[in-house]
Design a protein around this nucleic acid. Structure first.
Ligand SMILES: [Zn+2]
Ligand SMILES: [Zn+2]
Ligand SMILES: [Zn+2]
Ligand SMILES: [Zn+2]
Lengths: 180, 180
DNA sequence: TTGTCACATGTTATTCTATTGCAAACAATG
DNA sequence: CATTGTTTGCAATAGAATAACATGTGACAA
């Protein structure tokens, strides 16, 4: 079975705190092994990203960071994001100018993202079939692939269960909200 | 054969003027049939986009438009781009914040883009196999697809022919330059 | 300990990308 | 002509990201 789901859509009842601490532990471990310095700021930014199950914007992170860290400025955030991207701890969603935690930082990869346009939840796949098919089709054009950006918008399983025009209980719910 | 190349990588010797006028003729025809108003500004913006065989930035278009149209401002460009996107006459390349002419506006589609990181040339595919595989993989997660963003970065055939570290004749060449 | 070096952060300003809101101009229709 | 909807002009602002340079910090060797 070549297809692999790195970050699935989560059930409404999953333990969200656990989910964050697990991700942080993986990050600590990986950085330690690689001699990468997961400093206080970088760690905190990663934690802020993980604390939502949806793509987070750089300036949202900045606002949150400012509350506890006077003097935080755009470069503070973008440097942390650059580090986290380089270490494979987060991914950037190009179509949203936003960032999301990687569910499997153990090996570097480009993901394929399923983005719900109703609730903003995101699932990450790392599917060999997709990667290979794209590489094959590109090769037919004589093109050598270095990087793939694959972002799929649509409706996630939970939202499909809700009749289309229905006004849900709370339209401003975020994926993380539904986990609490 | 399900795979389809909408805009191939062009040979260095193709007739570039012809290529632009053909695209404009298709656009005129399509807008006429649909009752869409391809106004002077919109037409000119489309022409500016087609006159390069690479993704063009909004503010580059603005600079060019200003030279012949005093009073052009950001909204002037973005409104034109919105119209052209809505009519399927151009595509937006998310990973570059840039826009490129669509090689087949006759039917609306999401494309798959091959972007050369050396010369900035872009080829557009509209490949059913890719579309279907993604839809299938998404369905396995219970996800319903509405939109796909697929952008593949790498090295185009012409650039692969040039040894890697070689300094080419003119590094600032654009795809359109090479066509003249 | 002290010096040194690489790396990380602070600070200010700027660039690039895109949207909002409202007024004026224009085109199609009857 | 009058009406209506669309397009454009214009000024301001929001949002995303980087540049440039100064300052701080931690590891390590002299
Ligand atoms: Zn990942
Ligand atoms: Zn959803
Ligand atoms: Zn197209
Ligand atoms: Zn190339």
């Amino acid at each position: 079975m070549t297809d692999q789901i790195v970050t699935p859509f989560r059930s409404e009842s999953h333990n969200h705190k656990r989910c964050v601490t697990d991700a942080m532990a993986l990050a600590e471990e990986r950085c330690a092994r690689r001699g990468a310095r997961l400093t206080r700021i970088r760690r905190r930014v990663l934690e802020l990203i993980w604390s939502r199950h949806e793509p987070v914007k750089a300036y949202d992170l900045l606002d949150q960071l400012r509350e506890e860290h006077r003097g935080a400025a755009p470069p503070t955030i973008y440097r942390a994001l650059d580090f986290l991207l380089a270490e494979g701890l987060i991914h950037r969603i190009e179509s949203l100018n936003a960032y999301i935690g990687c569910g499997d930082p153990s090996h570097p990869h480009l993901g394929q993202f399923l983005i719900c346009e109703r609730c903003n939840a995101v699932a990450e796949m790392d599917d060999d079939d997709i990667r290979d098919l794209l590489a094959h089709k590109a090769a037919l054009q004589g093109f050598h692939v270095n990087w793939q950006t694959i972002e799929i918008n649509g409706v996630c399983p939970s939202c499909r269960a809700i009749p289309n025009g229905t006004v849900s209980g709370n339209e401003t719910d975020t994926p993380a909200d539904r986990c609490r």
